[in-house]
């Protein structure tokens, strides 16, 4: 199982080496409802931690998706353009948003691990 870290805004980053795959969590997709559109960053874009990197839209809500850590976008999930429902069906798999080359891996320490995120979700209900 990949090493996955979470933000309080319900983004995740699945880390492998110096890169990571970013998306929104299962909790987030449930709260948003049917996802109808995802606006992704451009490949090559430099994003900073906690800055808006993507937008996810359901029928009645649009939410900013923040970068969990800083880095350069090295790939995006273009399939979401045609199949935004993948975010609902498989948020941690086919529903990924973009891949990030980390510029400051130490920022990962500020994120939650699986257990901490689960505990955090408990506090929201």
């Amino acid at each position: 199982m990949a090493n996955i870290r979470y933000t309080r805004d319900h983004e995740y980053i699945a880390i492998d080496g110096e890169a990571g795959t970013v998306g929104i969590t299962d909790h987030a997709q449930k709260a948003l409802g049917d996802i109808v559109y995802v606006e992704l960053p451009a490949v090559g874009a430099i994003v900073a931690r906690a800055e808006q990197a993507a937008v996810v839209e359901s029928v009645k809500a649009a939410s900013d998706v923040f970068a969990p850590v800083s880095g350069e976008v090295i790939a995006i999930n273009s399939a979401l353009e045609k199949q935004p429902g993948a975010v609902n069906e498989d948020p941690l798999g086919n529903g990924w948003f973009y891949r990030l080359q980390l510029s400051n891996p130490s920022e990962l320490e500020g994120l939650m691990d699986e257990a901490a995120y689960a505990a955090y979700l408990e506090t929201l209900d």
């Binding site: 109808v36 559109y37 839209e57 359901s58 029928v59 009645k60 809500a61 649009a62």
Partner: peptide
């Protein structure tokens, strides 16, 4: 496509 509109996006 009402997510473009003011009642959802507000200042955006």
């Amino acid at each position: 496509l009402s997510t473009r509109e003011q009642h959802i996006r507000r200042e955006k």
